[in-house]
Nucleic acid binder design. Structure first.
Lengths: 208, 208, 208, 208
DNA sequence: AATGAATGAGGGTTCATTCAT
DNA sequence: AATGAATGAACCCTCATTCAT
């Protein structure tokens, strides 16, 4: 009995993942998820309290991972590299060394948590993540010491750009090689863009 | 009666804009929109044929504007500048001259059209816009002559980043000055990121 | 003012007639009727108490005419002919002499009253008319003295056949000549069918 | 559960049949049908995809039967008799041999299909059936070789009369014996009427 | 008299959740 | 544990009728 139950539970989790990923929380149907998992609507509720409970189960480890990653709770997640290389090729090499842990954080479930959570109590997830990224970005800029006008706003926008790039890749790329490549490209792009922006401001691009 | 009618119609358009902007087309409720506009559900249908009709009314001029802009149908929309300046400060100055027309295209309603249209016949709007941007981007890169591996994939990602940046600003910024400033920043960032990316690749950042 | 009012009223009556005839009472829309009459929804209610009131106005004279006709209230309606000729050609000639009064009763509005009244208080009109016809038919048969098993049932069916034929003609034929011709054919058919039926029964066609 | 489910489904089919029969498709309410079946609106949709689906389920076998009957697809349906007897008593005897198959086609559900389908995809059913009957009728007349002026119009009217008679019986008669008797009467009446009409015309009843 | 805005009841349909078996 | 029937709230939409101007 126990064994059987785990199989069903696993299938429900997978089906939910697929549906939430494809359609978002609100537009997913419990009936369909149960069907995809090879079980029935009613039985769904033997495994999960409700639709949102399934969502949380799918996503809960990602939240912890994300938290660990961005707050450096665990040694495996070390974000020092972010602060180092400002020269393109070197940066890319540096990234290569971290691609594993990037991939550990930026997963399909991460996507679901951030981009498919409208209608759940995590509907603010995007904001939370953006805040994290923004703070990091501001931290870097402060270290470098450059003055950017309306730093908070700008940092918010950049954080958003960073996140959207990641989400785009997770949504649209399914091969592992492609994902790694695009993440690398994205980060390089992002670094260069940021540096360029800082330079631009330092040379007088005004708020108005 | 004429006057009163226009007021209600206006309020419905505003309420619709607010709801679509906040919740998207599908998750908006006609009842709620009518309520926000200070009228009743039934009366809504004296002003608009149906929910989608309201959406179209809100958005229809934006589509025309976008088309004019990206296809250069009108003299007022001239995109030559995009191809010119590759140096940060000069680029920013160039943009300044175009900020009006950028703002004319990138409006709150543009956001609704592109980001809130799921469930309407415009549900492909994002794809359409992305395709436009991607083609422009590829055009530029071809001119410059650099080889980017997996150009189509990369261009797709960059186009997405460009668009998301714009959408982010429209979603999160309400003051006019802030919007202009962030659009400028975003474009500068984007230019520099692209240049950096191209350089990075030319210096050997491989697909794998 | 009075003049103008009459014109509108007339147009509403015409439009109602057209709509009821085409779509029936229930499926007709007051808005559309008003529109067809060249006026507005609201104004409709200055001329008629409600949708059903319009229906009654359209149809009320037909009811009286029908009553007069079948009960011989007026000299102009004389149904003696029905009882006379049992030989086809003679019958047809006899009918020719009455076609005017038949046409006076079997009008487009008669059709509306009988076939389009569902949803009004005249929804039993068909039954009423059928009852009339049935009684007449039974009267004739009694005179002739033949025994038809289950006379009431049979008479009901025949009455229905008679009525449906009339209604069919009114619905599908618009030229005056065609209508007259078909009415004549229908009545001849009906007479011969009835005679045949009576004969058939007299020769032993049993109830079972 | 299986058993119970079948009961409800059956009740819904019965309630639907009753309502469609009484009120027609358009004027029937799913809410009411569900209520009559002793269940709730929502539950209706556990049994049928939608209102029209219920209609189709009620009616689908009738359509096949009708097609088989009129096209002679199956040996059980043999319409040769229609062409044989022109003498009342013989005709009645001949019909007696076919009353079973007539009853198999002309059912309460046939009535629903033909007379209550407005609003469904079968809204043309009446036309379809009339066309069949008309062609058969014209076929007979051609065989006999008589000339009827305006044959198509007349045949249309007669076909309509034939069909309406059947529909009348199905609508108003509920006992089996009564139905059989009336169908027989109706067909006899119809035969004699047709013969009489042909004779009448041959003797000079003109179009005008 | 005329307008058409406003109302409210009712239509069909979907779906998360509960419940009986 | 498993089934899927049952519920009820919410969805979009239509329309006869009333009301204010």
């Amino acid at each position: 009995m126990q064994i059987k139950k785990e199989i069903i539970r696993e299938k429900l989790l997978e089906a939910g993942e697929r549906e939430f990923f494809e359609r978002g929380f609100t537009n997913s149907s419990v009936r369909k998820i149960a069907g995809l998992a090879g079980t029935t609507l009613g039985n769904f509720y033997n495994y999960f309290k409700n639709k949102e409970d399934l969502f949380k189960e799918i996503v809960k480890e990602e939240i912890i991972k994300f938290d660990d990653f961005f707050n450096g709770h665990k040694d495996e997640f070390n974000t020092d590299w972010m602060k180092v290389e400002m020269e393109p090729v070197a940066f890319c090499r540096a990234i290569d060394g971290y691609s594993d842990q990037l991939r550990a954080v930026f997963t399909r479930k991460f996507y679901i948590w951030v981009a498919c959570s409208e209608g759940t109590e995590y509907s603010n997830s995007r904001k939370v993540v953006l805040e994290f990224i923004k703070e990091h970005f501001i931290g870097h800029v402060m270290e470098v010491g450059t003055k950017i006008p309306a730093l908070d706003n700008t940092a918010g926008m950049l954080a958003n750009g960073f996140l959207d790039g990641i989400l785009y890749i997770l949504k649209n790329q399914s091969e592992e090689a492609g994902i790694n490549y695009l993440i690398k490209s994205h980060m390089l792009f992002f670094l260069m863009g940021s540096i360029g922006l800082i330079e631009g401001y330092s040379e007088g691009v005004a708020y108005d």
